[in-house]
Nucleic acid binder design. Structure first.
Lengths: 225, 225
DNA sequence: CGAAGTATTGACCCATTTCAAAGCATGTGG
DNA sequence: CCACATGCTTTGAAATGGGTCAATACTTCG
């Protein structure tokens, strides 16, 4: 177990790593820098996510990982994962699946940046994050926590903070949702998913949680208090 | 083994699949459609790629797969992969790695769309594809095949075909590279990677080919004739 | 109380899109 | 062998979404 302070680096690009992390509480981000030091977020992580399991087969990361909020993580030594892969092919496949879910979300982000306008991008990010948080029992369809600044939203959606501010204003004025102090309130979920062309099948929720039984769900919910 | 005609669909989004494909010859693309039927490419595949290995743990795809050119693929039944995962954890990890390479390239694409201007996007795509082709012994630093139209380049880089045409003109005029009839000629590789902020460490070439011995390389080269 | 980080708003600018027309291959049927 | 359609590329002119620059306000915190 390890505690991580908000806005600190968790893993640095390129350095060899011998463990992966499971996020228990808080939010992490993954991003790459361009030549002028501008960041582009490539992933956002919510509690329950295996943040850098891909470091197990790859042994280094091609991006940085940082905490958006204070966070609690569990450390998984690669030696332990290695043992799992030797002994339990069923569980190995589930770990593999977890890393592929990540890739599916990457594809959604490519689509977001490639085909949606500014408002659509913000809507899709909100819709996706809301759905992921609901899937792990945090937040509801109408309200969830997202500890980011407008500038960070811009780094995720490839927009300037100025324009994010304008987009949020139009979303507010049109009664779709609000974003204040790191909290999203959704007043019109239908319009949000519509405007963001959000398709939850990307998240493979049926498959991802097919093997989570009721007892485990309750245990997870308790652990998050 | 299976032959696929240019511009035909190989796998359709959402349908359950019981096999994955290894691309032996030709080029495939993966893309998602937006509501108005516009395509956004999320991946481009060159010979040697395991195109949809992620379908093994996921059992369906969240995107379409189509052939850019005539292509030759090998079919890998999931039952066979399943057997590998039970019997050979070493090889399983290599398969896992192959799907993660895909995710690393996805991240590069997110960066491309988020932080590069039109010219930079095209340069990065050319640099990346050139590097991947070279890694499997196809093409050189100064010349390789890329069977796409300008409109398809636009679908990969999130640009209109009109603007792709203009970008190619500036690249031609500045002596960096040319693109004609599905072939890229690079006259200034340094400028190409610079303009596209291309960083080959994304491709993990050291790691990906660490276990390919000389005999195997020669066999692969022969198989491609 | 001042400082630093964050959000808002306005005016102007520019990269890319949109719309439109024309050129150039390639192929097909009469 | 010509007439014509089709698909791809090029070029120009006008429109626009989002960026840039700049000023102001609102927090929070020492």
């Amino acid at each position: 177990m390890r505690h991580i302070a908000a806005r600190t680096l968790v893993v640095k690009k390129g350095e060899p790593v011998d463990h992966s992390t499971l996020l228990l509480r808080g939010f992490l981000s993954r991003y790459v820098d361009d030549r002028r030091g501008q960041r582009q977020f490539v992933a956002l992580h919510v509690p329950g996510d295996l943040v850098d399991l891909h470091a197990f087969p790859m042994k280094r990361l091609d991006h940085d990982v940082a905490a958006l909020s204070d966070a609690e993580v569990a450390i998984l030594p690669h030696a332990a994962i290695e043992a799992i892969t030797r002994e339990d092919s069923e569980l190995t496949r589930k770990l593999w699946f977890a890393t592929l879910l990540d890739a599916a979300i990457h594809r959604e982000w490519i689509f977001r940046l490639g085909r949606l306008d500014a408002t659509g991008r913000v809507c899709q990010l909100f819709a996706e994050t809301g759905a992921r948080l609901q899937a792990v029992g945090l937040g509801s369809e109408t309200h969830f926590v997202l500890p980011m600044t407008q500038a960070e939203l811009g780094e995720a959606c490839a927009l300037t903070s100025v324009h994010v501010s304008r987009v949020l204003k139009t979303l507010r004025d049109s009664g779709i949702c609000t974003f204040r102090d790191g909290e999203v309130c959704v007043y019109n979920p239908e319009a949000l998913t519509q405007r963001g062309q959000f398709d939850p099948t990307y998240l493979y929720l049926d498959h991802a949680h097919a093997h989570t039984d009721g007892a485990t769900r309750r245990r997870l919910a308790l652990a998050r208090r």
